[in-house]
Simulated scan of single mutants.
Amino acid sequence: MQSNSDITAAVTLLKQTLPEMQKRNIATTPENYAVWYEYVSGRNASLVNEINLLDLNKTAFTSAIHKDLYQKHIASEREALVNQLSDNVKGVINSFLKQARQEGEGLGMYSKALQDISSEADAMQSIGELKLMVAQLIEHTKHREDAASEMQNSLVSMTREMQQLKEEVARLSGESSIDTLTRIPTKSVFIEDLETHAVMARSDQEAISIVLLEVDDFKLFRSKFGDAIADKVLKFIATLFKKNLKGADTIARYGEQTFAMILPDTNTDDAHSVADNLRMRLAKQTLSDSAAKVQLGTITVSAAIASLKDNESAEQMLRKTESALSKAVKEGGNKITTA
């Protein structure tokens, strides 16, 4: 297992490598990335010298040149470089996000518990010493929270940066983050992004909401019209929803016939408006398949919304939204339920 210093060094090299490639307009394929990661590290003198000479002669870094550089300087020793780096960075990111989420929650709960004790003490008699002790503990906690505030701001800034690094690593290592049918992010990406957005929303004291939408009676639809047409309809719905989102709102495929959305800086009422707009836009569509010469009729969705509450994790918000969605479906569909 690598030490923290080894992982930190790997992340530092990652941050230096991408700009070197971008300023030369080099495609970020795994092989190209391995070449430039090694170049930035400076460990391979022959590779560094050859690239510097190419730069000096203003030679374009074509795919043929990169293939030659990779074969001569990388392949024999560093075949698994990209995968190793990807695992390192992902480990850092996952540990950091967990720490960032727990930091504010832990201190906040500690302060609230002490304040509750102080409130109870107000109604008691002859416990002046106890009240004094509790008051001192609350003051001590406030100092801890003030000290943690600066740290939290730094953590949020790092969260944004690490999220960008994670996306780059995923792309470089060929990790599947896009649903092959609908061409929108997968459920795993949605969950990870929700964790990040929740940390930032809590730190910035901003609202954040999510929406889950499930296509009503889609299994019956698939059974009636077949897989090919059903898949076309899912692609259509994904495109329709994506086009009608705004700003930083994002969409992902959450299940076979379920879509999930993250709505940053959005309260419950506004989230309800977003969900209702999407629901009505879809319900107004009369679908058909011209190739198969089949009339498909209309499609509706059930939806559930939730906003992040104090001392609530992203996972808890997601679970209660799933329960609300199940309720909407059982009640007949084509409706919105607030968790």
Rank of each mutant, 00 (worst) to 15 (best):
D204M: 14
Q205T: 10
E206P: 02
E206Y: 09
E206T: 12
E206F: 04
I208N: 09
S209E: 09
V211G: 10
L212S: 08
L212W: 06
L213E: 12
L213T: 10
L213S: 15
L213W: 01
L213F: 09
V215A: 15
D216F: 12
D217M: 11
F218W: 12
K219C: 08
K219Y: 08
L220K: 15
R222W: 06
R222P: 01
K224R: 15
K224C: 08
F225A: 05
F225M: 07
D227C: 03
A228W: 02
I229S: 01
A230R: 01
D231R: 00
K232Q: 08
K232W: 00
V233H: 06
K235A: 05
K235F: 00
I237M: 09
I237G: 02
L240I: 03
L240Q: 13
L240N: 11
L240T: 14
K242N: 15
K242G: 01
K243Q: 15
L245Q: 08
L245W: 10
L245E: 08
A248G: 02
A248I: 05
A248Q: 13
A248F: 08
A248V: 06
D249S: 11
D249W: 07
T250R: 12
I251V: 14
I251Q: 04
A252C: 12
A252Q: 04
Y254H: 10
Y254L: 07
G255C: 06
Q257W: 00
T258F: 01
M261P: 04
M261K: 05
I262G: 05
L263Q: 09
L263I: 07
L263A: 09
D265R: 13
D265P: 00
T266F: 04
N267L: 03
T268G: 04
T268P: 00
A271I: 06
A271P: 09
V274W: 11
A275V: 05
N277V: 06
N277F: 11
L278D: 03
R279T: 09
R281T: 02
R281G: 10
R281M: 14
A283C: 01
Q285G: 02
T286N: 10
L287K: 01
S288L: 00
Q295I: 05
L296T: 04
G297F: 03
I299P: 06
S302P: 04
S302V: 03
A303D: 04
I305E: 06
I305R: 06
A306G: 04
L308Q: 05
N311S: 10
E312I: 04
A314S: 15
E315M: 08
Q316N: 13
L318V: 08
L318H: 12
L318S: 11
A324G: 15
A324M: 08
A324Q: 08
L325W: 08
